[in-house]
Amino acid sequence: MSDFLDILTHGRRFKAAVKELSVDELKELAGKLDKIITDREAKIAAESEALAERNAKIEEIRKQMEAVGLSVDDLGAAALKAAPKKRAPRPAKYKIEVNGETITWTGQGRTPTVFKNELDKGRSMDDFLI
């Protein structure tokens, strides 16, 4: 695509590239380019109008804030939500001692292997309640 742009933007190369075209074809090409230019200008005008409208609204809000006595810093403080506090860890509900090591479990999540092994042997979870 860069070769195309090089030819299109370089006067002599462009002239050499279109020398085989008839006058009618050149006029058609010029019409297409004019349409592209018109569309691009309209798009730029719409974007600048939207930006101007946005800036006008911002200025209007700024004046309203000034009238009330607020600043942008006040908004920042109100917008920031306090970080949620971490909850305390759940207390252990079950306890088992294996090889001198005490293992506790809250009853939440996957059952630890040592508890599962004891359950497979026929014991009940009530046996391990703290």
Results as ranks from 00 to 15, higher is better:
Asp3Lys: 06
Leu5Ile: 06
Leu5Glu: 08
Leu5Asn: 09
Ile7Arg: 01
Ile7Phe: 00
Ile7Asn: 00
Leu8Phe: 11
Arg12Lys: 13
Arg12Tyr: 02
Arg13Ser: 11
Phe14Trp: 10
Phe14Asp: 05
Ala16Leu: 13
Ala17Thr: 02
Ala17Leu: 07
Val18Ile: 15
Val18Met: 11
Lys19Trp: 05
Glu20Thr: 12
Glu20Gly: 06
Leu21Asn: 11
Leu21Thr: 05
Ser22Tyr: 08
Val23His: 14
Asp24Gln: 15
Asp24Pro: 04
Asp24Cys: 06
Glu25Lys: 13
Leu26Gln: 09
Leu29Cys: 07
Gly31Lys: 07
Gly31Gln: 11
Gly31Val: 06
Asp34Trp: 07
Ile37Thr: 13
Ile37Trp: 08
Ile37Ala: 14
Arg40Ala: 15
Arg40Leu: 13
Glu41Ile: 12
Glu41His: 13
Glu41Asp: 15
Ala42Thr: 15
Lys43Thr: 13
Ile44Arg: 14
Ala45Cys: 08
Ala45Trp: 07
Ala45Asn: 15
Glu47Phe: 10
Glu47Gln: 14
Ser48Val: 13
Ser48Gly: 02
Ser48Asp: 15
Ser48Ala: 14
Glu49Ser: 13
Leu51Gln: 15
Glu53Val: 08
Glu53Trp: 10
Ile58Asn: 11
Ile58Glu: 14
Glu60Gly: 07
Ile61Gly: 06
Arg62Val: 13
Gln64Pro: 03
Gln64Lys: 15
Met65Trp: 07
Met65Ala: 11
Glu66Val: 08
Val68Pro: 01
Val72Phe: 11
Val72Pro: 00
Asp73Ile: 05
Asp74His: 10
Leu75Glu: 08
Ala77Gly: 04
Ala78Tyr: 06
Leu80Lys: 15
Leu80Met: 12
Leu80Val: 11
Leu80Phe: 06
Lys81Gln: 10
Ala83Met: 07
Lys86Gln: 12
Arg87Ser: 12
Arg87Val: 10
Arg87Thr: 12
Ala88Ile: 03
Pro89Asp: 09
Pro89Lys: 12
Pro89Asn: 08
Pro89Val: 04
Pro91Lys: 13
Pro91Ala: 12
Ala92Ile: 03
Ala92Phe: 07
Tyr94Phe: 14
Lys95His: 02
Ile96His: 00
Ile96Tyr: 01
Glu97Ile: 04
Val98Lys: 07
Val98Tyr: 03
Val98Ile: 14
Asn99Ser: 13
Asn99Tyr: 06
Gly100Phe: 01
Gly100His: 03
Gly100Arg: 03
Gly100Pro: 02
Gly100Leu: 03
Glu101Trp: 02
Glu101Asn: 10
Thr102Leu: 09
Thr102Asn: 06
Thr102Trp: 00
Trp105Leu: 03
Trp105Val: 00
Gly107His: 01
Gln108Arg: 09
Gln108Gly: 03
Gln108Ser: 09
Gly109Cys: 09
Thr111His: 01
Thr111Gln: 07
Thr111Ser: 01
Pro112Trp: 02
Pro112Leu: 02
Thr113Tyr: 05
Thr113Phe: 04
Val114Trp: 00
Val114His: 03
Glu118Ile: 00
Leu119Val: 02
Leu119Trp: 01
Leu119Ile: 05
Ser124Arg: 05
Met125Trp: 03
Met125Ser: 03
Met125Thr: 03
Asp126His: 03
Phe128Pro: 00
Leu129Tyr: 05
